[in-house]
Design a protein around this nucleic acid. Structure first.
Lengths: 159, 159
DNA sequence: GGGCTCTTACTCGGATACCGTGTGTCCGAGTAAGTTAGG
DNA sequence: CCTAACTTACTCGGACACACGGTATCCGAGTAAGAGCCC
């Protein structure tokens, strides 16, 4: 799985603590974790395309959350970065084997494919059960100083 | 995810139908689905290293299941091909951020990491719940002619 | 006929190329803020 | 002083290289079967 997923999730959570009506540039989000700014920008673009962030160009521009943290699931972010395809892709191996394949969709009927898909669905269900708001809340509960420290750090980066 | 997983799972199920005490060569297993023999051989080697298959060289050699189909989970096969690492690898992004990181293992404490890991565990749990014997049984129940057809096809490939 | 030896062909196993995707970087189009000049 | 146009610097966005892992292939080490020969 792409490393960008980790970057994207942490950046989204950070954005929830900076919500002051103004956008945050990719450069600042990158500097926070010492990441390559241009490449993080690429990932943020993917989030914007997926409707998770909104991007505004020009001075005082940058990214901000497109909707409430409660309405952004972790699965949304993963899908935006990794794409919507399942990890296991059924290539319909059975079609190359013996037997009659007339009008059969092995993606539906193949037992192997079904088993892998079931696991995939369990994975997605788990990720869809967590929202960015949940992450934010858990961090605030366990590490109460983090939001303030994060805000302060971004303030200092502003200079 | 590697395409070899699909090949490996189908090959394992096929082997359950051919269990006659003698091994099956990678070439024949490959021919069944018109796969590149040398490359399938590579995947079967991985299964052998993982203790799922046993390999015997020389004439009348080949591969056979190392243990009963009930004792081989789908997760075992996936792990043998893909490796034991999680799909999401926590690079401890937080360590590059602000704050004190003395003696902290973010793979354990980071909320993002925990969330991703929980999903990963759900995935694995699902795969660990299905064995090769389960796949075999389901196929035999739904498509009763398959075992016989498979055996016959392999008989013809023997020539 | 039985047993030993040698040949032989066959199998896996790892070492070797090739290619696509993720990783990383760069520069240009567009925009909004700040400035300046005019009314 | 207010307004409007211009300049300017800043941001995203996509186009361009690089690297690594999955894909595919080939040839060699080892082995067991089978033939042949001797007893």
């Amino acid at each position: 799985m792409s490393e960008g997923v980790e970057w994207a999730l942490h950046s989204c959570v950070n954005l929830t603590w900076l919500e002051t009506g103004e956008a945050v540039t990719a450069a600042r989000l990158a500097e926070y974790y010492r990441l390559p700014a241009a490449y993080l920008n690429k990932q943020l673009q993917a989030l914007a395309r997926a409707g998770i962030l909104t991007s505004t160009p020009g001075p005082r521009g940058g990214f901000r959350l497109a909707r409430a943290p409660e309405d952004i699931t972790v699965l949304d972010v993963v899908t935006a970065i990794e794409g919507a395809d399942d990890a296991f892709q059924c290539r319909e191996l059975l079609r190359s084997g013996p037997g009659d394949h007339e009008g059969v969709d092995y993606r539906k009927t193949c037992v192997v494919s079904q088993t892998m898909r079931r696991a995939e669905l369990a994975y997605r269900r788990e990720l869809a059960g967590s929202t960015i708001a949940d992450l934010k809340a858990t961090v605030e509960k366990r590490y109460a100083w983090v939001p303030g420290m994060t805000r302060t750090t971004f303030e200092n980066l502003r200079t």
